[in-house]
Amino acid sequence: MILAAGAILAPSTQAAWSLRTSPNPSAATTSQLRGVDCRSTTACLAAAQTSTVGAFSETWGGTSWLLWMVTPPPASPSNFQDVSCPPATSTCFLVGSAAGAGMARATNLSTWSSLTVPTVAGAVSLELTGIACTSGTACIAVGWYQTAGGSTLPYAIRCTGTTCTQDRVTLPAGTQGSLEDVFCLSSTNCSAVGWSHAPAGARRTFVVAWNGVAWSSQVSANGTNAQSSTLFGVACASTACVAVGRYTDTSAVQHTLALGKSGSTWVDLVSPDPSGTLPTFEGIACPSATACYAVGSYANGSGRATLVESYVTGVWTVLSTPNPAGSTDNHLADVACVTTPSTVCRAVGYSVDTVGTTRTLVEDGP
Rank of each mutant, 00 (worst) to 15 (best):
residue 207 V to E: 02
residue 95 V to M: 03
residue 168 R to L: 14
residue 4 A to W: 12
residue 279 P to Y: 01
residue 330 N to H: 05
residue 190 C to M: 03
residue 235 A to C: 02
residue 133 C to D: 06
residue 120 V to I: 13
residue 78 S to C: 01
residue 176 Q to P: 05
residue 18 S to K: 14
residue 176 Q to D: 13
residue 354 T to W: 05
residue 41 T to C: 10
residue 297 S to D: 14
residue 349 G to I: 02
residue 3 L to W: 07
residue 183 F to D: 13
residue 92 C to F: 02
residue 201 G to R: 03
residue 268 D to K: 00
residue 193 V to F: 05
residue 232 F to W: 11
residue 272 P to Y: 02
residue 311 Y to P: 00
residue 287 P to C: 02
residue 181 D to Q: 06
residue 41 T to F: 09
residue 83 V to I: 11
residue 242 V to F: 09
residue 322 P to S: 10
residue 100 G to T: 04
residue 158 R to Q: 14
residue 107 T to W: 01
residue 344 V to I: 14
residue 332 L to I: 03
residue 256 T to N: 10
residue 258 A to K: 03
residue 182 V to D: 02
residue 88 A to E: 06
residue 224 T to N: 15
residue 62 G to N: 09
residue 324 P to I: 08
residue 35 G to F: 00
residue 161 G to F: 00
residue 66 L to T: 15
residue 300 N to P: 10
residue 198 A to S: 15
residue 307 L to D: 02
residue 46 A to G: 03
residue 75 A to S: 13
residue 287 P to L: 08
residue 350 Y to N: 09
residue 250 T to F: 06
residue 340 T to F: 01
residue 207 V to F: 07
residue 20 R to H: 09
residue 291 A to D: 14
residue 33 L to G: 01
residue 142 V to E: 04
residue 293 Y to V: 08
residue 101 A to F: 05
residue 27 A to M: 13
residue 27 A to N: 14
residue 337 C to V: 09
residue 223 G to P: 06
residue 213 V to G: 07
residue 160 T to Y: 11
residue 22 S to C: 01
residue 115 L to S: 03
residue 345 C to D: 07
residue 14 Q to T: 13
residue 17 W to L: 04
residue 358 T to L: 08
residue 255 H to W: 07
residue 7 A to H: 10
residue 350 Y to D: 04
residue 2 I to D: 15
residue 316 W to K: 07
residue 272 P to L: 06
residue 9 L to R: 04
residue 5 A to V: 09
residue 42 T to I: 15
residue 62 G to Y: 12
residue 261 K to H: 07
residue 140 I to T: 13
residue 212 G to Q: 06
residue 75 A to E: 08
residue 138 A to N: 12
residue 126 L to K: 01
residue 16 A to G: 07
residue 71 T to A: 13
residue 244 V to T: 03
residue 71 T to V: 12
residue 27 A to K: 14
residue 272 P to H: 01
residue 316 W to V: 07
residue 250 T to E: 09
residue 316 W to F: 04
residue 108 N to A: 04
residue 81 Q to W: 04
residue 218 Q to G: 07
residue 40 S to A: 15
residue 134 T to S: 08
residue 142 V to C: 01
residue 349 G to P: 04
residue 118 P to D: 09
residue 300 N to R: 11
residue 84 S to E: 08
residue 336 A to R: 01
residue 98 A to T: 01
residue 282 E to P: 09
residue 160 T to D: 13
residue 144 W to R: 14
residue 70 V to P: 02
residue 104 A to S: 08
residue 231 L to G: 00
residue 171 L to W: 01
residue 361 L to N: 01
residue 257 L to H: 06
residue 178 S to Y: 05
residue 229 S to T: 06
residue 142 V to K: 03
residue 21 T to G: 09
residue 68 W to Q: 10
residue 263 G to N: 05
residue 239 T to V: 14
residue 87 P to M: 12
residue 241 C to W: 04
residue 249 D to V: 07
residue 107 T to D: 10
residue 141 A to P: 05
residue 210 W to S: 02
residue 2 I to G: 14
residue 155 Y to C: 03
residue 228 S to Q: 15
residue 53 V to K: 05
residue 100 G to F: 00
residue 300 N to Q: 10
residue 22 S to F: 02
residue 21 T to A: 14
residue 114 S to Q: 13
residue 34 R to D: 12
residue 155 Y to G: 09
residue 79 N to Q: 15
